[in-house]
Design a protein around this nucleic acid. Structure first.
Lengths: 314, 314
DNA sequence: CTCATTTTTTGTCCTAGACAAAACAACCGT
DNA sequence: ACGGTTGTTTTGTCTAGGACAAAAAATGAG
């Protein structure tokens, strides 16, 4: 009953379900784009089922990125890949004009990564960590690297498995360091913070960076890991009497759903429990419901904690 | 264009997309079951869209578990929840008859978890780790606890966010310990192992346990984290010249797709690169393609490594 | 009891159409 | 020139009903 492998399972062809997994675009969207814009234009296999060549999948990935950045499908689906690339180039430049200065320094990491010198890569990370200290490491190295690697992947410069290697190694370094931090003693430490991502957002690295900074500022952190359903986030926050719930939204998450998710969560959580949402998701830059603090930059966290403490000081 | 929150967004009702996220059952399946078996029987909102009450969602979750265990939809969708529960009871008992003896000991952990005494929980884990040593900790505590927690969740005994807490804490303990293990020196260490899960399998904890055991046996491990697409697994294995690719399949993963995935991977990977697949997924117990080693129990790993070394010794 | 063959079950894909919310454009009054 | 109200277009998600191959179960023959 599984429809997939007809026989000639050319590894450069994907079924519609495969494309959904790879691009995050639903089957319905793929079909309706095909009808409306004439793209994608999959071939058909023996049964008449859609079969997508890899280059179209690549284009779809790119399209999704651009749409999340705020461009509209109708305007860009017809464009050739070369133009899409230059559009994306421009968009990323606009979004983070500041990090141009550190880029040559970070480029070295990318090269280690794409030549698969993993051990050297890890050592380079650790060296930076030692030299800069944990806070500056997170702010100046880890966070920019994440966006850089994400962009490089969207542009096709690096492979997805190389991004996975990157995430894994960075996770190791951060988790290792985090563990050696003294945990604040039980009741006294405030704010009490709950960290997680919502269902549909599998990336936990942003969470880990946030947790690192929070722990450095001696907050009482509890992470639920990625993909907690909304109802369970609320239950956990209440059980833990959390002061703040921190959510991370990566560029992968559907930007149009961010608003709806935050609104629902705001209504599920107790009023005195704050929501801080951060990450590289373009949806965060649009209007968001009141009662939710949007933090586009990790830098803002330290100040925000100080502000919270001042507010709750008597 | 987002259809979801019509207005009266009763938090005990879910749209069809929400049910898909929560249960892992696709929209098509939900609709076709409704037509064929009369269940689920969602209400309709103002637009005529399906709206699922929570109790039906719970039943659907349970149904999925039972179907993965090998039961057939047509036989069980009509049954009331109580009967489904007793069926599941019996199935889990049959599957792991051995771990009954350790259960009272593990029960203590479950209680700490469901009363949210996280710090005590972590300390209890660490205490066991110290007492038993890493290998026995993984085999006798961590692995059985994972299945126990998974079952408790399916049965409704614990909340999902409590399972998340569990996973997170166990991950911390294991990663922390793993890091302090001496890494085998570059070229000499064999086998070279690549660990990951395929797209659609988000659970990485089994991977971590496997990696722990492999590292204890001084293999050269590289983890890609969860959800690497098949093509990228192959690329990474080739780039790394991996001797073994280890894949983990949890009960969450669709049991019927395991075979197809393994077949495709087998054809993508070089012949001299072995595939070891493990985890609690019922699909692994069915017939699997040749050229793939199925390991139902973590215990088998050490012996398998020894066997591999003997085979490649000259 | 084993193996090959038919029948039933079941998941996924197909087409074609509907519609509300989001995004955009046009307008107006200050 | 700018903020708010209106109307129009775009776009994602849902609906319906039908088709079909692969898996599983049932059947039959040796």
């Amino acid at each position: 009953m599984v429809r997939s492998p007809v026989m000639a399972d050319d590894s450069r062809l994907l079924s519609i379900a495969g494309v959904e997994r790879e691009t995050g675009l639903g089957k319905d969207v793929l079909r309706v784009w095909e009808k409306r814009y004439g793209f994608p234009a999959p071939e058909r296999d023996v049964h008449g089922d859609r079969v997508y060549p890899m280059d179209q999948v690549d284009k779809l990935r790119l399209l999704r990125r651009l749409i999340d950045d705020g461009l509209r499908p109708g305007k860009i689906v017809g464009l050739p890949i070369s133009e899409l690339l230059s559009l994306h180039e421009r968009a990323t430049r606009n979004a983070s004009p500041a990090h141009g200065c550190t880029e040559p320094e970070l480029q070295e990491f990318i090269e280690l990564l794409s030549s698969h010198r993993i051990d050297e890569f890890r050592l380079a990370l650790l060296a930076r960590l030692m030299r800069l200290g944990l806070e500056r490491f997170v702010l100046d190295i880890a966070a920019p690297l994440c966006t850089l690697v994400g962009d490089a992947w969207a542009r096709g410069t690096i492979q997805l498995f190389e991004e996975h290697m990157f995430t894994e190694e960075l996770t190791r370094v951060l988790r290792g360091t985090l563990q050696s931090l003294a945990r604040p003693s039980g009741d006294s430490a405030r704010p009490r913070v709950l960290l997680t991502t919502v269902s549909g957002e599998p990336h936990a690295i942003g969470l880990l960076m946030a947790e690192t900074l929070m722990s450095l500022n001696s907050c009482d952190c509890l992470s639920l890991g990625p993909q907690t359903p909304e109802g369970d986030i609320a239950q956990a926050a209440i059980a833990r009497q959390a002061d703040i719930v921190i959510l991370s939204f990566s560029a992968w998450f559907n930007a149009q759903q961010v608003g709806a998710v935050l609104t629902r969560l705001r209504s599920l959580l107790p009023a005195q429990c704050e929501i801080w949402a951060g990450g590289r998701n373009p949806g965060l830059q649009r209007d968001q419901p009141s009662g939710v603090t949007i933090m586009t930059e990790l830098r803002e966290i330290s100040a925000a904690i100080t502000a919270w403490r001042r507010r709750h000081d008597r």
